[in-house]
Write a protein that binds this DNA or RNA. Sequence first.
RNA 1: GCGGGAGUAGCUCAGUGGUAGAGCGUCACCUUGCCAAGGUGAAUGUCGUGGGUUCAAAUCCCAUCUCCCGCUCCA
Length: 538
Amino acid sequence: MSNTSSPSTVSMETLAALCKRRGFIFQSSEIYGGINGFWDYGPLGAELKRNVRGLWWREMTREREDVVGLDATIIMHPSIWKASGHLDTFADPMVDCKSCKSRWRADQIAEEQGKKIEIEITEDGKKHYKMPAGVKCPKCGSANFTEVRPFNLMFATHVGPIESDDNKAYLRPETAQAIFVQFKNVLDTSRQKVPFGICQIGKAFRNEVTPRNYTFRSREFEQMELQFFIRPDEAVELICGHVAQLTPDTDLSEPHADWGWEIWHKYWVEKRLAWYRSIGLPKASLVEYWQAKDELAHYARACVDIQFAFPFGIQELEGIAARSDYDLTQHHIHSGKSQEVFDDELKAAVAKLDDAARTAFADKVAADWQAAGKSPEAAHTFCAKLFDGRYIPHDIEPSAGVDRLVLALLSDAYCEEKIADDKGKEETRVVMRFNPKVAPIKLAIFPLLKNRPELVAKAREIYLSLRSRWNVFYDESGAIGRRYRRQDEIGTPFGVTVDFQTLEDNTVTWRDRDTMKQERVAISELATRLQNAETGKQ
RNA sequence: GCGGGAGUAGCUCAGUGGUAGAGCGUCACCUUGCCAAGGUGAAUGUCGUGGGUUCAAAUCCCAUCUCCCGCUCCA
């Protein structure tokens, strides 16, 4: 991963200090010395994070007819992790070179040197790895390794009162599998049909070797993800007679029936990028990174990382993977429960073909599959199912880290300005330039002076009239300028001040966080202004 | 987990064996007619934690936890 420095000037230390000082983020269990890789969100952080989740949920399901939500458990049947491959691939055997102190994946360096790592399974089912003789450290050439130790990234626990291997369970290392294993239930109950998606927001856990970069890599984190299920390209071809080709001119604004996985994937990449921009992340700080073929997971056809220029480097916010039918197929096989769907349109399209056309189609698919290194027999089985109107859907997965996005919003928002006061003395103004949509507090309401009961009463009245709809904040302590600055530092986009003129004509001064400009606004107009700020109209 | 650096008030830090400090912030009261004004007062630390050396430890020694940088991994 690149270490390109971000255009942002804020250091992680400065940002973390502000987050703690103002109550965005605290270290978990701090009074007991903290616990590595776990973070708590304070009052403002909790609001910020809720806003992010809310905006995502609204965009991904409420405002779409083809996506529904799910809220699944963190602990699930352990067989799920066997089927998904996490039990095997999440336990990396690691060694350290005692000579040069470098660390390696034992299986990888053994394989590179033409050897195979020895695995011994003990009676209690535990795996013991042994480095074969003759393997040398790729860095210094020494063969002086520590013992091979497995690092399983899944947190394990036991279900029920007795701890034994029979009731071992895991905290989910990703939310995706929960969606796959409920795919059929959702399909049967939601009156959706392919193509459609299931989205979920929830916690996931990884026992990371080294949590790092503030909240960026945590052991407990939250994901927002969509699994969008589509027809296999072969089914699209049978129904539409062709599969649309992705070109630079392809209109991605509305889905079309002739889209194959490639256009659907591109569609979601564009959708997600547009969403990040809509919540205030500038286009320039977002990077669309297309993984090279050799970086892809074995089941993935394509994967795009949406990256953000963090102060510590350009790092991933979201991955959008075309996962083929891999996951549902795994569960189809391991659970013994069919994950196939029946597609009326497909069945109707196939009914119009004669036997010769079907044979020709199946032969073409077999040839394509063979060219891609898959067996032609499997292709014929697949086509026989297709002709019956059945297939296992393919999947496009846009999967984002909530905590990472919150960190991106915080680091993007942070801004220090040099401004001169009326005496010409220069001072620094710290401003969190959150987009109003995500800002923890939308509006601060101040009486100009707190020792004038009539001003206080009016300001309280405005506060009480708005707070059921927006997170607004009332503050009467300190000089007015000081109160403005306090709000700047927590990113409140607007402030209104009740002064003596308010008592005469029901107007207040409306102060903009970014420009510091003030204008006279009727109290009756405040709700409209807040609503416009939230919908992006200004 | 390994190597390097660091932990003192909410924050930034001073304090190198002899009674725990500063600035900012926070809170209260006064003051204040629009951008961190001023005044008075207050709260907040068993100096990361545990042990040891010493008449005496924030300071020296050991262990441990946490944070930062690198290896590894990823949403």
